[in-house]
Design a protein around this nucleic acid. Structure first.
Lengths: 348, 348
DNA sequence: TAGGTTTGCGTGTACGTACACGCAAGTTTT
DNA sequence: AAAACTTGCGTGTACGTACACGCAAACCTA
């Protein structure tokens, strides 16, 4: 194939040294206007494109990317998945002089977010991946990063009004809307649907609220006449869950939608006759998958957490190292997972 | 941060020259067993990983990758998608001295496959991506490539008994099995299911046959007592389709499964009352999506054709350029697509 | 006008790897 | 035993770019 032109070729043709060409290309100044024009013209003419390999090799800069996510724990298996994606991307970009440092905070403790974010900042990262669980604290962190001109990417959700490089998250309303469709397949004319929100403060977990809103919107658009009940229950009252469910599920109930922690609801309703009930929940955690396999849960909506971690890290890499344009928006697909295809989603 | 170890570091620690380390790493021989072991041991110990950039720069080889897929046409929109994935991957690896050349054949003409494959071979590609539509011809091509030690990757399906580097395709049986589950959600005790195979020769399109087999297997395992009809119709008899469908769909029919060309069936049954019928088909072609949006088709199973093209090209890149181990098996996930999330699948 | 600064350019080394070559010591062939 | 290989290793150059350094000539300052 036709050989690529190098700055040496340019230099030769222009009758100058490669140093001069280098200065022109990088706008380092100290070149006469006449020479500059000439070199640029020849670059154009010979269709010069820099050799990325040689650039990176010569630049020899070691990048540091920091990740900042909730610490995965037994009752919080979900956050292992983004880490898997992060680890995969880390492996792939090994050899490019990029160091990825992982930092964690406690998902139930705003203070740990503040504290650990400082630990992260002192490593002087060149880019940061953030799961902005705590709105206010995450916004403060974003501001600091903006001040220092450090690019950052959000996963899971995003903070409006910040200057993020990109985000990778699912639209909660749309996913609820889709859940509506799935339950709809199974409904009869006079059935009922039960929505379970497992949280103490629905207003502080807007994505759960939006999931429910999406489902109700769908039913409304279908002119569904049956009743849609909501059951909001705090994690503190977990012991009451079983009782509450029995109270709210009866022979007309043909749809069940949990906006989080599907496995807890699944455990409670194990004994209810199942073929009658279309049960849709979220996320492929091991606990949830167990009940999916048992046929208690029918569908799990997946937000591809591993892909989020993977994509976000690669976005930072593309931006920092490869200097490529990165798309600012990355709405994650809403994956429909049933017993028969959940294996497809066990890896990234 | 900790500097990456180079072969120089290895050489220093081992008390040999970098040339020796190079010979060990590349198995060029002419190194005493003792030295070899020592160097390898130190590589392990220092966790040496080659710098891809420097490797590529030094090798200074320009790779050629050829792709060989059906030419996308108006009645064959599907094959645009793999190309999109191929183009995306091509962009990503631009700058690594890799040239991707696309070759096409006519999906209805075995002769064009043979002919174009020769055109492809004369470019002396270093790796090939193949859509093995014609079993016998594809096998011949694979043999030639094997003889010349040119690695190749299959998409869409694979030819058993060949020495492919990797494949990216969906398991047709499993996808039919999954379709069974989806239709099952909608069935009543005494309903019927209709399966439509749109082909002249089911034996020559085994993946369609396997899709149907998967569905039947699922129903069998559920102890489904209702009837499952099969309607095999040749594309030549397309005009009869409408009539045949009316003949085979009646008030008890609550499931409709097309193993291909869903849009043609959809067009024919537009006028049949719909809410009663759960219609599952394959592939997100524009025609199919149109009927998905109109509510005629309920679910499309997607085999991620763009991801297949993308993954296959990257696999070749990883193998040739990055010399990384490539997984031989890449079963594609079976994506469940409904009206409410099809947009998520419009890009890669 | 001596001294300093700026402008404009070339040279040299480094990045990490591949590979051709060379050379001494040991081994086989004639 | 001389000639011809083989084994085991080191050296040197190339890949294309970045960047520090150096050095004239031109320009400015006091």
């Amino acid at each position: 194939m036709k050989k690529k032109v190098s700055i040496r070729d340019i230099a030769e043709r222009a009758g100058v040294s490669i140093g001069t060409v280098d200065r022109v290309i990088h706008n380092r100044g100290r070149v006469s206007e006449k020479t500059r024009k000439k070199v640029l013209h020849i670059c154009e003419e010979m269709n010069y494109e820099p050799n990325v390999l040689a650039q990176r090799l010569a630049a020899d800069k070691a990048y540091i990317i920091a990740t900042f996510t909730p610490k995965p724990r037994r009752d919080n298996a979900y956050w292992r998945f983004p880490l898997e994606g992060i680890n995969k991307a880390t492996e792939e970009i090994a050899g490019y002089r990029v160091t990825v440092k992982q930092f964690f905070f406690d998902i139930n403790d705003e203070e740990s977010f503040r504290h650990e974010s400082l630990n992260m900042l002192v490593t002087q990262p060149d880019g940061v991946l953030i799961a902005p669980i705590f709105h206010r604290e995450a916004r403060d962190l974003a501001r600091k990063l903006d001040l220092n001109n450090i690019p950052y990417v959000f996963i899971d959700s995003r903070i409006e009004g910040t200057n993020y490089l990109s985000y990778f998250a699912q639209d909660p309303f749309r996913s609820g809307y889709l859940a509506g469709r799935l339950i709809w397949f199974h409904l009869k004319k006079h059935s009922e649907v039960l929505v379970v929100n497992f949280t103490a403060d629905l207003e502080n977990h807007l994505h759960l609220k939006q999931r429910e809103a999406g489902l109700r919107q769908f039913m409304k658009e279908q002119n569904y006449k049956g009743h849609i009940r909501s059951l909001n229950i705090s994690p503190r009252d977990e012991l009451l869950l079983s009782h509450k469910l029995y109270e709210n599920i009866h022979h007309k109930t043909r749809g069940l939608f949990t906006t989080s922690s599907a496995h807890k609801v699944a455990r409670s309703i194990r004994k209810i006759r199942k073929k009658e009930l279309m049960f849709v929940g979220y996320d492929l955690t091991p606990d949830n998958v167990k009940y999916l396999n048992q046929g208690i849960i029918d569908v799990l909506l997946c937000q591809k957490p591993a892909a989020q971690g993977y994509g976000a890290l690669r976005a930072l890499f593309d931006h920092l190292v490869r200097r490529k344009e990165v798309s600012k928006e990355h709405p994650m697909p809403i994956e429909i997972v049933v017993k028969e295809n959940y294996e497809d989603y066990s890896d990234i």
